[in-house]
């Protein structure tokens, strides 16, 4: 089975892009499933079910969504392998713009939209910078110039990535993406022993453990302060 991780800021069009791309993959005879990771709430699993795509949903709730992702991705992979899917796509939102739940040796796709502003590529960390494929959406509503400037900014922060433009509404471009997703040499049976491409941010302070009171005396553990002198 091929595992493909898809990440991107909330509302960038990940689900639309995945749905349209799976259409093309199914036509080529692939068995495709999705694992949807989100934070508090998602309806997307219903969208996948409606499209006849096997789906597992995981909500991280009070935990860091990306830590939750890594802690569960091996089980999800096992589910995919056991069910004999050809391709399993994991979908997760990069909520803090830094994280990259990308795994070495596993194809990584980042979805980001033209409306997010031309400085956005600068602000997104490994999620964008270490992706193999960057999909840019919502190109149908901005000018050609803005599309070009945006794509060139993405290229500056990740020159090695294949940059693709996809219209999540019509699906234009999704066939092309589908041709890049399956690679026989990337078949896996398990994720055990594989490594993340980039370490996740550390978080171990009293607030991680449920503290709600504000003030220095309540802060313990890995706490860092802003520099306030000018």
């Amino acid at each position: 089975m091929n595992l493909v991780t898809v990440s991107g800021p909330p509302s960038s069009g990940k689900t639309s892009v995945i749905l349209k791309t799976i259409d093309s993959l199914k036509k080529r005879g692939f068995k495709v499933a999705v694992a949807k990771f989100d934070c508090l709430y998602t309806d997307d699993d219903i969208l996948y079910e409606k499209a006849g795509i096997p789906v597992k949903k995981g909500l991280s709730g009070a935990l860091c969504p990306d830590h939750y992702f890594v802690s569960n991705v091996e089980e999800i992979t096992k589910w995919g392998v056991d069910n004999k899917f050809d391709i399993l796509i994991s979908e997760s939102a990069g909520l803090c713009n830094r994280c990259s739940p990308y795994i070495k040796g596993i194809k990584a796709v980042c979805v980001i939209d033209n409306l997010s502003g031309i400085n956005t590529p600068k602000k997104i960390g490994p999620m964008l910078k270490s992706a193999d494929i960057v999909v840019i959406t919502k190109g149908d509503i901005v000018s050609q110039a803005e599309r070009e400037v945006f794509a060139s900014r993405v290229n500056t922060v990740n020159p090695a990535a294949a940059i693709m433009h996809i219209n999540g509404l019509t699906g234009q471009g999704s066939f092309e993406l589908s041709t890049l997703l399956y690679d026989e040499s990337l078949n896996i049976e398990t994720l055990k022993g594989k490594e993340l491409r980039f370490p996740m941010p550390a978080a171990l302070c009293s607030y991680c453990l449920g503290e709600t009171r504000i003030g220095e005396s309540y802060q313990m553990g890995n706490v860092r302060k802003m520099k306030m002198e000018d």
Binding site: N114, L115, G117, I118, D140, I141, V142, S143, Q144, E146
Partner: peptide, 8 residues
């Protein structure tokens, strides 16, 4: 296209 806008 018709529905393109400037957003900057």
């Amino acid at each position: 296209s018709q529905n393109m806008n400037f957003v900057m």
